[in-house]
Design a protein around this nucleic acid. Structure first.
Length: 259
DNA sequence: CGAACGACCTGTTCGC
DNA sequence: TGCGAACAGGTCGTTC
């Protein structure tokens, strides 16, 4: 679930909530997760996003990298209540507790040395240019959709937003990246910023169980044009939205206005 | 280097 | 109604 807009939403809420807070206790409830007891007593100095990862920096220089994968969530509680179902880790801070929730147990946390050792792709909200896309896309025979999903090219786009961006740009997701024209790369760069920016403003997309740090739904699901809308008319041209498989992922597109 | 595919997990939805 | 198959926001390792 969490793609860039959802992770960005969590990050902004984490910054406001736990920056400066001291980590009083750590409870690991899933044997797949590493022991991180040495963080006990440390103060959170910084929270930032790298693609879909969240980096928590502590006052002694240690960094915790969190990746929520498909179904991971973070939930903040100030009062002590019942532990939510599928909680895999609990961090207790001075002012409250952070629950790491994930039914599928894909969520990962790992200690990292320093935040500059990141080698992912560009951040689509910051440095994305048509020239960069064209240069990286030119040698690739695979579909433009799997190109947009490649985290070493652009960090943060997932399946929902890849579908929505390509619809916004009016481009067939199955088109090989090497056959995208400069004018189309231009549109893709603009649509990426447009769609992701709007989704961040909506605090993400709640298609099934996504919730933000305070348990609230996002609202971008009301603005989806093609994702999970197979059989419904395209809001732009009226043709029926289709679904196909690209690189093993369900892909939604409009055969009428995506060429 | 690039691309396709199975694996990792568990819950929900769909078709017969 | 019941049951198995298909599908779900994401990566990663293997193989070609």
């Amino acid at each position: 679930m969490p793609e860039l807009p959802e992770v960005e939403t969590l990050c902004r809420q984490l910054v406001k909530t736990i920056t400066g807070q001291t980590l009083l206790d750590i409870l690991v409830l899933d044997s797949k997760l590493p022991e991180i007891t040495e963080l006990t007593g440390r103060r959170v100095s910084r929270v930032e996003r790298r693609g879909k990862k969240i980096l928590l920096s502590f006052d002694d220089g240690q960094i915790l990298a969190v990746h929520l994968r498909m179904t991971g969530r973070l939930l903040w509680q100030e009062e002590v209540k019942e532990i939510p179902q599928y909680t895999r880790l609990i961090l207790t801070f001075t002012a409250g507790r952070v629950f790491f929730i994930d039914p599928r147990r894909f969520l990962t946390i790992q200690k990292e040395r320093d935040s500059s050792s990141y080698h992912g792709g560009v951040d689509p909200l910051q440095n994305l240019t048509p020239e960069y896309l064209a240069a990286r896309g030119r040698p690739r025979k695979g579909s433009v959709k799997s190109f947009l999903l490649d985290q070493s090219v652009i960090a943060g786009i997932g399946n929902i937003y890849a579908c929505e961006i390509l619809h916004h740009a009016g481009i067939d997701p199955a088109r090989p990246a090497c056959r995208i024209t400069d004018a189309q790369w231009h549109r893709i760069a603009l649509s990426t910023k447009e769609v992701l920016g709007r989704a961040v403003a909506c605090r993400g997309t709640t298609v099934s169980d996504w919730r933000d740090f305070h348990g609230r739904k996002g609202s971008f699901q009301h603005e989806l044009r093609v994702y999970r809308r197979a059989g419904l008319p395209c809001p732009r041209c009226g043709k029926i939205v289709a679904r196909c498989l690209i690189a093993g992922r369900g892909t939604y597109f409009c055969p009428g206005c995506q060429v």
